[in-house]
C-alpha cells in the first residue's frame, strides 16, 4: 500500500488506499464541482472543487469569513449554489428539501448549538432515530404492541450512543441547563444516533477549553474508526485539525487556497500567508 505522503494529488483524490494508521479510504462520496454561491451581490464561494472520500476525516479550514459555513451548508443542501454541481454517491444531486437530505444519510451538527431546548438529553438523542421509526399514528396513540417494541429498540440504540459518548450521567437532564461542552457532545450524539454515512461537523471544537477539545477529538476519531463514518468538519483551530484530519481544504475569501494532507497544506506558501502566518 502506498504511503499517503508520497502520493500524487490525483492519487490522493481518487481514493482506494489506506491511511498510515490503517483505516481504509474508499471512493468519493461527495464531490464539489466548480461551486459558486452568491447572496445578492456578495460572492460567498467562487469556483470551489474538492471531494470527500468514503471513510476519511476531511477538514475545511480558513480564517473568519472564508466561507466555511457556507461551504458546509452547500454540502448539506441547505444552500443551493448558483453555479457548479454537487455530486453525491456518483451522480449529480438535484436540489431537494432538507429532510430528504437527511434521508440520504447525511447528519450534521451546528456552530451555534441547535439542540431541542425543551427536551432532555435522552429525548434529543432519540430525535436522531426519528427517521428510522415508522409505526403510524394509530399505534403511536395506543403506544402498545409494535409501537412500544419500536420505541424500545430505538431506545437501545440511543443508549448505545449515549454510552459511546460518555453522557450517561446527564441522560435525563434538560439540555438547556447543561454546560457548553456537554451540549456540543449531546449534539454529536444526536447526529450519531442517525447512523449517518456522512457526518458534517460545524466547528465542533469552538469555544471549548483544551481538555474538552481533546475529548472531542478523541470522540471524532473513535466515531470514524468504530463506525467507519465519513466525517467532514469545519474548524478554526489549526492544531486540532492537523492532528485528526486525513485531508484538508483551505478556504480564504471564498476561494480555495490549497487541498491536500495536513503536511502538504502546512507547507503551502499561500496558506501560510493567508492563515498560519497571521493566526496564532
Amino acid at each position: 500500500m502506498n504511503e499517503m505522503s508520497s502520493m500524487t494529488p490525483e492519487q490522493l483524490n481518487a481514493g482506494g488506499y489506506s491511511t498510515p494508521d490503517g483505516r481504509p479510504i474508499g471512493s468519493p462520496v461527495m464531490e464539489m464541482k466548480n461551486i459558486t454561491l452568491k447572496f445578492g451581490g456578495v460572492t460567498a464561494l467562487s469556483n470551489i472543487s474538492f471531494n470527500i472520500l468514503e471513510g476519511e476525516i476531511r477538514a475545511i479550514i480558513g480564517p473568519n469569513g472564508a466561507g466555511k459555513s457556507s461551504m458546509l451548508n452547500v454540502i448539506n443542501g441547505f444552500y443551493h449554489p448558483q453555479e457548479g454541481e454537487v455530486w453525491f454517491q456518483g451522480s449529480p444531486r438535484p436540489s431537494m428539501p432538507p429532510y430528504e437530505i437527511a434521508e440520504q444519510g447525511i447528519a450534521r451538527t451546528f456552530q451555534n448549538i441547535a439542540l431541542f431546548k425543551g427536551m432532555s438529553t435522552l429525548q434529543n438523542v432519540m430525535t436522531g432515530r426519528q427517521l428510522k421509526m415508522k409505526k403510524n399514528m394509530f399505534w403511536q396513540m395506543l403506544r402498545y404492541g409494535p409501537a412500544i417494541q419500536e420505541e424500545v429498540e430505538h431506545r437501545r440504540k440511543a443508549e448505545e450512543v449515549i454510552d459511546f459518548l460518555e453522557i450517561q450521567h446527564i441522560r435525563h437532564a434538560p439540555v438547556g441547563s447543561l454546560p457548553y461542552g456537554l451540549q456540543k457532545r449531546v449534539e454529536l450524539a444526536r447526529a450519531l444516533a442517525m447512523e449517518p454515512d456522512l457526518l458534517l461537523l460545524d466547528e465542533p471544537m469552538a469555544g471549548m477549553n483544551v481538555e474538552e477539545k481533546e475529548d472531542m477529538s478523541r470522540f471524532i476519531l473513535d466515531v470514524n474508526e468504530q463506525y467507519g463514518t465519513t466525517i467532514a468538519l469545519i474548524e478554526h483551530d489549526m492544531a486540532v485539525v492537523m492532528d485528526i484530519a486525513d485531508r484538508v481544504v483551505v478556504l480564504d475569501y471564498g476561494r480555495m487556497l490549497a487541498d491536500g494532507t495536513p503536511g502538504e497544506v502546512q507547507a503551502d506558501q499561500a496558506v501560510i500567508d493567508a492563515y498560519l502566518g497571521v493566526s496564532s
Partner: peptide, 30 residues
C-alpha cells in the same frame, strides 16, 4: 392517548419543530 402520543415518535417531532424548526428539518422531520 395524548400522553402516549407525546412520548413517542410523533410527539417528539412536534417538540422538534417547536424548539428549533430548521434543525428538525435537517434531521429529517417533514
Amino acid at each position: 392517548i395524548a400522553s402516549n402520543l407525546i412520548r413517542g415518535r410523533i410527539g417528539r417531532s412536534w417538540m422538534m419543530i417547536r424548539d428549533m424548526d430548521i434543525a428538525a428539518e435537517l434531521i429529517g422531520v417533514r
